[in-house]
Nucleic acid binder design. Structure first.
Length: 292
DNA sequence: TATTCGTGAATCACGGACTG
DNA sequence: CAGTCCGTGATTCACGAATA
């Protein structure tokens, strides 16, 4: 069956759903909501059937979540949904069990990281090498099947590319994910702050640290965020460690937490704790921001 | 002096290697 | 193959020290 993207876009746009009051017009709202979920599902299949077909369950989940949290002053609903879906999709793609289940390939974290690293490097350098050639070379160098490299590359690209659906609401969530891992899936974080605000918040909290802490936190935060930061951003904020950033762009190699610990003559546990505390402070800061 | 930091020990998570 | 053992990297906890 062919899905007509335009048609579903139109149906989504023309839906009365968000004109209804979900309390006084409960039944009508429910009815429209069900329809909307269906539209969104069909819409995604129209966008890319083979890619999304197997995720009906997840699509429905996100659609429902979006419908429940969307308010009309948040802009276009479809954008809102797309941003949320992109994140969910990344999440699915990043999930280890998924990798094994759906591609029938066993992949280690190491290989995953390595491939995404090299792909990224290649894009940065832009040697004009074709994807397939690159994959072949990578496969040879890493002594793993080309097929595996190809799959991993796809995943890596999902994570780093800025395709049509990226917007700020999406990216802010990515930054959070990079920083703090799986923060609770409350939808509020999806739209609350802009990237600038969150980077500003990071900066703010960073400035409040004691002097001895700063270089360490700086390195660690940069490690976590370096692939999300643009050049202008990295020069703009003082919490970005230039050293790490340089290492990242030139070699693609990042130090481990342990190496950071050694570098500053600290116990690695100390680093871990400092980072944790920093993130907690950051969380608090952002929450306060959101309330006022 | 109240906070904030640093530390070592214990523990967890995970991948790889070995073994039967 | 499954079961296990080991190394690595990271986290958490309780406590003592440094800082603002």
């Amino acid at each position: 069956m062919q899905y007509d993207k335009k048609k579903y876009e139109r149906q989504i746009k023309e839906s009365r759903l968000f004109e209804l009051d979900r309390e006084t017009q409960y039944t009508a709202f429910k009815r429209e909501a069900y329809k909307m979920v269906e539209y969104l599902y069909c819409y995604l299949l129209a966008v890319n059937k083979q890619k999304y077909e197997e995720y009906g369950c997840e699509i429905t989940k996100i659609a429902t979540l979006c419908i429940n949290n969307f308010r009309r002053d948040k802009g276009d609903f479809l954008h809102y949904f797309n941003a949320a879906w992109k994140l969910e999709y990344q999440h699915i793609m990043g999930n280890q069990t998924h990798i094994e289940r759906f591609h029938g390939l066993k992949v280690t974290e190491e290989e995953k990281r390595a491939v995404s690293k090299y792909i990224r490097l290649a894009t940065n350098i832009d040697a004009g090498i074709s994807d397939e050639t690159l994959y072949l070379k990578l496969a040879a160098a890493m002594e793993i099947p080309v097929e595996k490299v190809r799959k991993l590359a796809q995943m890596a690209i999902v994570q780093i590319s800025s395709d049509t659906y990226v917007n700020e609401a999406g990216e802010i969530r990515i930054i959070w994910d990079q920083l703090a891992g799986n923060i609770s899936a409350e939808a509020s974080i999806y739209e609350k702050e802009t990237i600038k605000e969150i980077l500003f918040a990071i900066n703010q909290v960073f400035q409040g640290l004691q002097q001895r802490q700063k270089p360490i936190i700086s390195d660690m935060i940069t490690i976590k965020l370096c692939d999300q930061l643009s050049e202008t951003q990295s020069s703009q904020y003082s919490f970005v460690s230039k050293e790490i950033m340089d290492a990242w762009t030139t070699t693609g190699v990042l130090p481990t937490q342990r190496e950071i610990a050694k570098k500053y003559g600290r116990d690695e546990a100390s680093i871990s704790r400092s980072v944790k505390d920093f993130l907690n402070k950051l969380r608090k800061e952002v929450r306060l921001d959101g309330i006022k």
